[in-house]
Amino acid sequence: MLEQLEAGEVQEIHNDRMPICLFPKLEERGFPYETEAMEDGSAKVRILKK
């Protein structure tokens, strides 16, 4: 799905926990991201398409 984004678009996901296995894959593919830990233990991740 990320490959279909236009440059500058952001994909936001809400996960039930911090998706630590996803981060190395995003880094390998050159997708910058931001994370936000939520009080309930879930996490929001914003992924940017360069």
Rank of each mutant, 00 (worst) to 15 (best):
M1Q: 11
M1A: 15
M1G: 15
M1L: 15
M1E: 15
E3M: 14
E3Y: 12
E3L: 13
E3I: 12
E3N: 14
Q4T: 12
Q4L: 12
Q4D: 12
L5A: 11
L5H: 07
L5Y: 05
L5K: 05
E6K: 13
E6N: 10
E6A: 09
E6H: 07
A7M: 09
G8M: 14
E9Q: 14
E9S: 05
E9C: 01
V10M: 13
Q11G: 08
E12V: 15
E12N: 10
I13T: 09
I13W: 06
I13M: 09
I13E: 04
H14T: 14
H14M: 13
N15S: 15
D16S: 15
R17E: 11
R17S: 09
R17L: 08
R17M: 09
R17P: 00
M18I: 06
M18E: 04
P19Q: 10
I20P: 00
C21Q: 08
C21N: 10
L22K: 08
L22M: 15
L22C: 11
F23G: 01
F23C: 03
F23H: 02
F23L: 11
F23Q: 02
P24Q: 12
P24H: 11
K25I: 10
K25V: 06
K25H: 04
K25D: 07
L26S: 03
E27D: 11
E27P: 01
E28A: 15
E28M: 14
E28T: 13
E28S: 14
R29L: 12
R29N: 10
G30E: 06
G30K: 06
G30I: 06
G30P: 07
G30H: 07
F31Q: 02
F31K: 02
P32C: 04
P32E: 05
P32H: 05
P32I: 02
Y33A: 08
Y33D: 04
Y33I: 01
Y33R: 02
Y33T: 04
E34I: 00
E34P: 00
T35H: 01
E36H: 08
E36R: 12
A37M: 15
A37I: 11
M38N: 09
M38D: 04
M38Y: 00
E39T: 08
E39L: 08
E39M: 04
D40I: 04
D40F: 03
D40V: 03
G41Y: 13
S42I: 04
S42R: 13
S42H: 06
A43V: 09
K44M: 10
K44W: 02
V45Q: 03
V45Y: 01
V45L: 09
V45A: 07
R46L: 01
R46H: 00
R46P: 00
R46G: 00
I47M: 11
I47Q: 03
I47T: 10
L48N: 01
L48D: 00
K49N: 09
K49M: 12
K49F: 05
K49D: 02
K50P: 14
K50W: 08
K50G: 13
K50H: 11
